[in-house]
Nucleic acid binder design. Sequence first.
DNA 1: GCGACAG
DNA 2: ATCTTGTCGC
Length: 324
Amino acid sequence: MRLESVEDLPDLWKETYDLVAQVPEGKVTTYGEVAKALGDVVASRFVGLAMSRNDDIVRVPCRRVVQSDGMIGGYTGGGPEKKITLLRHEGIRIRGTRILDFDKVLFTDFISNRPLRDLKARQLALRKRLSLGMLATDIRQVAGIDVAYEDDHAFASLVLFDYSSGEEVGRFTSEGDAKFPYVPTYLAFREIPVIRSLMRRVPGGTIVMFDGNGILHPEGFGVTSQIGVVFGVPTIGVAKKLLCGEVGKVSSDGVANVRLKGKTVGHAVFRGLGAKPVYVSAGHGLSPSQALEVTLKFAKRRVPEPTRVAHLAAEDARRRAKSK
DNA sequence: GCGACAG
DNA sequence: ATCTTGTCGC
């Protein structure tokens, strides 16, 4: 039960700062090592972001976090020169912008409960409830949902379309703080909390289209699948960039299979020659072919209407709040 | 230097 | 995702 919850999330920012606080004077570590201590190397860029936002350089020695190749890396509090000066003062030997005896001064012995490993386990637990069979019998509406950010303040919007006419029939927005950062393949933990209130407005007989992948994901369980399972609604994932997998040969209708580990897990939809595709995959509660069919029905442009309009609405809410 | 990981 | 002006093209 607790395992499957998407609430009660770890404070990844705090955990990161606590880890870096463990690096002793005279030692350095790397963004990737801190990420591994968090539970997954994919978070290494987030570690860099967290260091750049560090506001307590006494407790959290972000100067001691460097690149995995021994290069010094950047330093928000005064540039690389400042970082070099500070580290030399701590006994680290540096030539140019490279650390000498890197293996001797590298600290990796973190004490950590690896929060991302737990989140991955929650993801896998939720995945057991994934179904790619027909969940909704009669589809009356398609909803597009998207989130825009002003730093970590989120503006989410839901736009409803009538399935047969394709006309917009309603829209809602909400806002709140995103407490969890963006980490590739953990997107659901960032976005599910901020769309929760909107999901209550999704009528029965609605397919939800979301900006992000469904089963086109390293674990076969992207943000859109997780949303589908958590809220018990059929979902379709539409991503603008490829997260993983390989795109096959484009057929005459402008559609190509996307394969992962030998299986077709989604489709690249090209609108026009030489154009960038969008990557469509089933989220939950419907079949891959049904996901493609519904998407094509709303694909007047590159990005299908529900997701495209929801994006505009969320962006609109963000800009209105900003200028206020 | 290239490739690179949704939003 | 966000930071950003004008500009090229269907």
